[in-house]
Design a protein around this nucleic acid. Structure first.
Lengths: 323, 323
DNA sequence: GGCAATACCGCACACGTTTTCCGTGATTGA
DNA sequence: TCAATCACGGAAAACGTGTGCGGTATTGCC
């Protein structure tokens, strides 16, 4: 794939037309005869012509690039989202650049400056946590994913955490469980609070708040066992894995004696757990796809407003269903 | 931060010079009086001027963008590498775009086309595995990270896996261990084979090949215990975690009876393990930094050739040291 | 005071594409 | 048959910046 720098003028010359005409033929614009269009197309294909993005960007204003601005340095959430975003955008011949702010406001500002200077067509903003975040101030289309903007006029796409948590409860109750405990992360984390609220609303039970670790899952297990539960729903897969480990150590069978559910469907946790976890998949790729679609529409001139809640999906495995 | 589209002509007008002169002043080129330079700089600062990357790219040929091409969809390896790359490049005002090929050759080709069309200044190629990979065919500076190019004339930066594995052995021997077993992943994985070879060279012992899972770690533990080892080195943190779990189930104390080491220093495994794992950190950020430096030099016109092996670092934790 | 050298800056073009405007030839309707 | 309309394609400007070359003013030197 040598790049002899074939320009649109070369294509035009081969097709026997002017550069402007060649451009119109390749972009389906202007009024040209069908015969001319296909002749130019053939010439372009023959020469292996790929339009230079620099010239195109300068001329058309559009740069066919969108940025994914994330604070999630681990990539745990931003990678699946990015994959969804790319799915939609690459179909439209757009490129995606990933900018990791590492939770540093200065770095974020710096990124925004260069993104605007580069003339990206739009930005998807996402984060590690689900708490609403202050909007970014750029004269560009923006869509917030996972963490909504605090400005309700902005477009945001988030996961319906309450429904996800409720789904685990419904699932467990359908299995005949009646005494269901809830162990989750810090109360001041929105994701923990929202899931716990949904659980409490269904069960009238008191959630146990802690942190997101396996260790906390193990500790909390000892606490909730006093209530003789027949199921434990957890705010994350890490906690659930800790719960399973502790229950096994105590000789309590999962799911026969006690069913366990996680949250997030993080493969390294949910699948490595013994037994594998019934959990809630956040559908992050869907989230990314939806965010990208909204962004495309905003770029096209019809922006959306408000937050859109996408459903999560219950994934059942052996921690509630037996082997 | 409104963007009233301040162009270099605006800066030039405010400073009372021509656009060309303003450009030279801001880029430290041409011959200008110090007074003029600072006057232009003041004007630029006052107007909040940021040069438009599109025009700059078209004019200078350079786009001040490099791409990180990865096959590692999980982000487990590519994210730390990207962080290191960004560290170096953002200092030079370069942007990094992440392209995830998802191990699909077609997608890789498609990415390469658009990258060349966009005129990126260079490419860092990385992967999920350490096996050498076929080089990409682009008329651009390229550096391979983690997985070397099969073409020795290309520039590659990789981790010295053999030395990393040897370091665990030295560490264990220093602790007085003499009967050391080795459990690792598939023999046809270069990372497993290379580490196993280093271990075998030091111990004259037979490694156990399997897969990278915790389950295999648990299974293999039962096998190696017949040899009454006083230490087990593992080819990955996941395997090591499985080993620890199994040993605890069997009532064997780690590290008092048997010391255990992992490999990779993957936080969710190495820290969540009971006890936390002594392991080998791949220094992926260093890898990224080094790759970026080499790329910058190649872009500047002095390309390097051959593979550069960077040392890994032993991280000691309780799985070998006691509490 | 005149000449040459030097420092300094402006002019104009280049980069590759898109896009607006306009001209030409053909077609249709009266 | 003439005029009005339409389809088609070309010429040139525009996007914003970088840069080579030449011109001017200033300085230095004799």
């Amino acid at each position: 794939m040598k790049r002899p720098g074939v320009r649109i003028t070369d294509v035009a010359a081969l097709a026997g037309v002017s550069a402007g005409t060649a451009s119109k033929a390749l972009n389906n614009t202007g009024q040209l005869s069908q015969e001319t269009r296909s002749r130019v197309r053939r010439a372009a294909a023959q020469l292996g012509f790929t339009p230079d993005a620099r010239g195109r960007a300068l001329s058309s204003g559009r740069t066919y690039t969108v940025a994914l601005l994330t604070t999630d340095s681990s990539g745990r959430f931003s990678i699946p989202i990015m994959r969804g975003v790319e799915d939609v955008l690459s179909a439209g011949e757009l490129a995606t650049v990933l900018c990791d702010t590492r939770d540093d406001p200065l770095r974020e500002q710096s990124y925004l400056r260069t993104l605007v200077a580069r003339g990206v067509d739009g930005i998807v903003v996402t984060g590690r946590r689900t708490e609403p975040r202050p909007p970014i101030d750029v004269p560009l289309p923006v869509v917030y994913a996972l963490a909504a903007s605090t400005n309700p006029a902005d477009a945001s796409v988030i996961v319906d955490d309450a429904a996800g948590a409720a789904a685990t409860i419904t699932h467990l109750q359908g299995l005949g469980c009646t005494r269901i405990a809830h162990i989750t992360g810090p109360a001041h984390h929105r994701s923990a609070a929202e899931r716990a609220e949904a659980v409490a609303a269904a069960l009238c039970t008191e959630p146990l708040f802690g942190d997101w670790s396996e260790r906390w899952g193990r500790q909390a297990t000892d606490l909730v066992l006093r209530e003789h539960p027949d199921a434990i729903t957890c705010g994350s897969d890490q906690i659930a894995r800790g719960v399973c480990d502790r229950l096994r150590e105590l000789g309590r069978s999962v799911p026969d004696e006690i069913a366990v559910t996680g949250y997030d469907n993080w493969p390294v946790m949910a699948l490595a757990s013994r037994p594998p976890l019934t959990t809630v998949d956040l559908r992050l790729e869907d989230l990314g796809r939806r965010a990208a679609s909204l962004l495309l529409e905003a770029i096209a001139g019809t922006p959306h407003h408000g937050v859109l809640e996408l459903p999560a999906q219950l994934v059942t495995r052996e921690s509630t269903l037996g082997a």
